[in-house]
């Protein structure tokens, strides 16, 4: 079922992005923590890969030149985040 697949990929993106946000805020105060930077880069690589897969299947997650579009203009694909995400 594609709806479930989409939700599953989105959840994976959320989890990886959450790790990146947490490490990012920590690194803002601790810019010399090399272990944390390694973790940040590792989560970021995984996040970029899952986002690529999501965007190829369901359209862009972000616009203004940050992701390619299918035709017609896939940015407008439903659902928007507030519509039972």
């Amino acid at each position: 079922m594609t709806v479930n697949d989409r939700a599953r990929l989105l959840d994976e993106i959320r989890i990886l992005e959450f790790m990146a946000v947490e490490l990012n805020l920590y690194l803002d105060n601790n810019p010399n923590d090399h272990k944390a930077i390694r973790d940040y880069n590792s989560f970021t690589k995984q996040l970029m890969a899952v986002k690529d897969e999501y965007q190829r299947r369901y359209g862009p997650l972000s616009n203004f030149g940050t992701a390619l579009s299918q035709s017609p203009w896939a940015w407008l694909n439903d659902p928007w985040p507030w519509e039972l995400d």
């Binding site: 989105l10 959320r14 997650l61 972000s62 616009n63 203004f64 940050t66 507030w82």
Partner: peptide, 13 residues
């Protein structure tokens, strides 16, 4: 700023 078309945490009420 760049918008990301998803919520940070899922909401399905």
């Amino acid at each position: 700023w760049i918008y990301e078309k998803k919520l940070q945490f899922p909401i399905r009420i």
